[in-house]
Design a protein around this nucleic acid. Structure first.
Lengths: 248, 248
DNA sequence: CCATCTTTGTGCACACGTTCACAAAGACAT
DNA sequence: ATGTCTTTGTGAACGTGTGCACAAAGATGG
């Protein structure tokens, strides 16, 4: 899971399972591609292949939304695009602020995938006064002093944090205080937020580490087992010989 | 879940559950912070708070690694840092190539979190000949013609794709053919890879859409139910009430 | 109108993940 | 030593997610 939901029972989002919600954008993308090619209908099998999931899962996912689809035929592409968009809330406009316009923030500002869904960048905010007024992706950088005013004026409910780790919690607190209730966090920190605020995090370093884990496993599969797996019950500090990193 | 494991039974990575693996980097980060403050030991409760998880989960996670920790005291910080690092494979050097040095690729190249773990950027690769030779994050951009040679020469097993969606599958195929077996994909596409290759994806647009879904739910909780939830069993086209996007 | 064929929607069984709650392990004081 | 106190490690219960396999729905052709 990639979410940082700080508390709350974890799923129960009015019927639709969290795992399904996480896949809806995937289906939507595949459907949009089909729509652009003017394909009128798809079977669960075809769509599942395009989205990279298995067809039974896809059918079950759609069954949570309602009984769209026609047996013997498949799903009407345009109709499904509409239904999923609506379910995800993409038929309305979501003003978003991005805080921290470094390399990553600029990349986000330039990313086309936002505007095409209902997301509209209301403002780019950076703490560096020297940057204020400069244009990124056609938008002027605003100074962070203005954060509260910007959020209030644009009724922003979604904030993106792309600051260094050290600044993230403070920015988060200010966003929340100003009325933001959903946060996408790119800073490598655990954010703590009050009840009712959703946080999702994207952490590049974590993803790489997970890959490294599996990579190591693949590499280790040839040899039986070197000194890789420690004897269980080994105790820390029973006798001092931990040189910077080594255990007892 | 953020992974794009294309097939395979899903978990079973020599004992350690996938969900646990995904949290190890989180623990590692919290422990590293403690280590820098020269804190000698932590209880599961404290560490869990720092990592943003619940303490029972943390203890169970650690129990898969072995029986580190001392009852009545807690865990030895340095020792745990070492054990987790080793389990994740971070005690070795992982050469990485980043393909597609646009805004996002540059942000990744400049991201400090790589080098601090065992990840070393072996090369930055871009398809634009006009960019070749330019420096980003102190490294020269290489042309994609050299991709295969670079991967082979540096024994690169991990590749990062930060190209536009259209180029991603071809880059992926070339990386895999050249010997890469783990891919971190930032392009908004489903990559298909042969067995034995791991793909993880990070998709900005998907994360925002998930937030929008929950945001919409929060907003809709006040009013009972407008036209938001369609009657189940509604058929496409039985009566026209979906403008602009309705099917036949 | 009936038979056939395709594809959905879902009941069911199983796997995975989370949380509780507590016994056992050890530290520490006396 | 013995007792008390803290904190781990884990068995067991529960909840969530996945995938199979098939009945029911509807299209299509004769």
């Amino acid at each position: 899971m990639a979410t940082g939901r700080t508390h709350r029972p974890a799923t129960r989002s009015r019927g639709i399972p969290e795992a399904t919600v996480a896949r809806l954008p995937l289906y939507l993308r595949a459907l949009t591609a089909l729509s652009e090619r003017s394909v009128p209908t798809v079977s669960s099998e075809e769509l599942a292949a395009a989205a990279g999931v298995n067809s039974a899962k896809l059918r079950k996912d759609f069954s949570y939304l309602g009984s769209y689809g026609t047996r013997g035929v498949g799903y009407d592409v345009e109709y499904l695009v509409y239904q999923i968009s609506r379910e995800l809330g993409l038929t309305q406009d979501w003003p978003v602020v991005i805080v921290g316009i470094g390399n990553l923030g600029a990349a986000l500002a330039n990313y086309g995938g936002f505007a095409s869904r209902g997301f509209r960048i209301a403002a780019l905010i950076d703490a560096d006064p020297a940057q204020t007024g400069k244009q990124v992706a056609g938008l002027p950088l605003r100074h962070s002093d203005e954060l509260e005013a910007i959020v209030a004026a644009n009724q922003v409910s979604i904030g993106v944090i792309a600051t260094p780790a050290g600044a993230a919690q403070e920015v988060c607190d200010r966003l929340v205080a100003a009325g933001v209730t959903s946060i996408l966090n790119f800073a490598p920190t655990v954010l703590s937020v009050p009840d009712g605020v959703d946080v999702r995090k994207v952490d590049l370093s974590i993803e790489l580490q997970i890959l490294a884990f599996h990579e190591q496993r693949k590499a280790g599969e040839e040899q039986p087992a070197s000194a890789a797996r420690p004897a269980r019950g080994q105790r820390p500090g029973t006798d001092g010989d931990v040189p910077a990193v080594m255990p007892a």
